[in-house]
């Protein structure tokens, strides 16, 4: 990414909002689709995965930004991966200590946060060129955007696939679950639907004269 990124520009509201709206990882950049598809069968799974990713993203970006002047460019990717893998291992232990049921539900996708392109992408494109505080604010925004995306998918799939939201029944016990929604094809249907909606919103917002960011 060769975005103009003047390092001396201070922290603005857009530093945070970039990841939530203008460059939302799920709805705009369509990055990290592997966990997006696989774990979002319920709202709580989506949010947990989002929080875990946000934690890894924020901590990694902080450390990468802190060490940005020290790390030689030849070994930067190797360094970033070591840092990211460390925080993924931490999250792995923390989730196991918190709830084994959640750990089983998220399965291998916790470990796979390592290869989530959002994290390496942000470390390379943003954290390695900006001071720690700004990197953290930006990473938090990205993480929030990712979490919102996962929640939107997980919530929709849980409502249609089980008639529940956060495990609370919405339609009574006679609800007919749409089995397809908790199966992999449902992930694609729902993602397609949300991409469509988000594109419509952004189109409307742009027409209305609102401009986000620079």
């Amino acid at each position: 990414m060769s975005l103009p990124n003047p390092a001396d520009e201070g922290i603005t509201f857009d530093t945070f909002m970039e990841g939530v709206w203008r460059q939302n990882p799920v709805f705009v950049m369509v990055l990290g689709m592997c966990p997006v598809m696989a774990v979002t069968v319920s709202a709580i799974n989506g949010i947990s995965m989002g929080i875990a990713t946000t934690f890894v993203l924020t901590c990694s970006c902080f450390l990468v930004s802190l060490l940005r002047k020290l790390v030689p460019k030849e070994v930067r990717i190797a360094t970033y991966i070591v840092i990211i893998a460390t925080f993924v291992t931490l999250v792995d232990y923390l989730i196991q200590a918190g709830s084994l049921a959640l750990y089983e539900a998220l399965g291998a996708f916790i470990q796979l946060i390592v290869v989530n392109c959002i994290i390496l992408g942000r470390a390379e494109a943003h954290a390695s060129r900006n001071p720690p505080l700004k990197a953290v604010v930006n990473a938090l925004g990205m993480g929030l955007g990712f979490t919102i995306g996962l929640f939107a998918l997980g919530g929709t799939r849980e409502i249609l696939g089980a008639g529940k939201l956060f495990g609370i029944s919405l339609f009574g016990e006679h609800f007919q679950p749409w089995v397809v929604m908790v199966l992999p094809p449902g992930g694609f249907f729902v993602l397609g639907g949300w991409l469509l909606l988000f594109a419509l919103f952004r189109g409307k917002a742009a027409e209305g004269g609102h401009t986000h960011g620079a």
């Binding site: 790390v71 360094t79 070591v82």
Partner: peptide, 8 residues
């Protein structure tokens, strides 16, 4: 390089 990697 080795030193940095070692530190990290």
């Amino acid at each position: 390089m080795v030193l940095t990697m070692g530190l990290v």
